[in-house]
């Protein structure tokens, strides 16, 4: 409208008379977007609430819940160096020479390319300390994009009670790995 500016200054607004009633109902898309935002936020602020690392007999360090986690909720990020497959192979080679180094490489496919999160370096973050279980895992992995980079997060597969150990399936069953880490089978 040509006299818009004019109208703005010389006319009341309908909102002067009627109050805005923001719809509380959200579209499905909106909810998904908000959920994604929430996850991104958790990753960015390195959220590690409700987790405790404890020493367990036989398996070394493990991570336990100090609060309840609802099914489908964010638990922790598996944080480490985001590297290419080539880089990962080189590092793997290097690590295999030292038996004392644990298994902290997580491979995943993103956009048909294999990448790796290498959490071998002691970082003080919880994600890398979570133990493996093929049969009784209570977490699953999920990849989300944060600022254009894929990040690996661990989500609750079921309702997790306080005090339970957190476990997920490392997914690695190559013969080479099984030789070095026979516990991957269980």
């Amino acid at each position: 409208m040509k006299t818009l500016n004019n109208v703005r200054n010389s006319n009341h607004k309908v909102t002067d008379y009627f109050t805005v009633r923001k719809s509380v109902r959200k579209t499905k898309k909106q909810m998904l977007r908000e959920k994604q935002k929430q996850l991104e936020y958790m990753v960015i602020c390195e959220m590690e609430d409700g987790l405790e690392s404890r020493y367990t007999e036989g398996k070394g360090r493990g991570v336990f819940a100090t609060k309840d986690f609802e099914k489908g909720s964010f638990v922790v990020e598996y944080s480490g160096d985001f590297i290419s497959l080539m880089e990962a192979n080189e590092r793997e080679d290097q690590y295999s020479r030292d038996e004392a180094t644990g298994c902290y490489m997580y491979y995943f496919k993103y956009n048909d390319q294999t990448f790796c999160i290498d959490a071998t370096r002691e970082s003080g973050r919880m994600g890398r300390l979570i133990n493996h279980s093929r049969t009784s895992s209570n977490l699953y992995t999920k990849i989300i994009l944060v600022d254009g980079l894929p990040r690996l997060i661990l989500m609750a597969k079921e309702n997790i009670k306080r005090g339970q150990e957190l476990l997920y399936d490392y997914g690695d069953r190559s013969r080479e790995s099984l030789k070095h880490h026979p516990w991957l089978k269980s």
């Binding site: 309908v14 909102t15 109050t19 805005v20 009633r21 923001k22 719809s23 579209t27």
Partner: peptide
């Protein structure tokens, strides 16, 4: 389109 909706309550 996904539009931000502002509903007004009309008395």
């Amino acid at each position: 389109m996904n539009l931000d909706q502002e509903h007004l309550g009309i008395p």
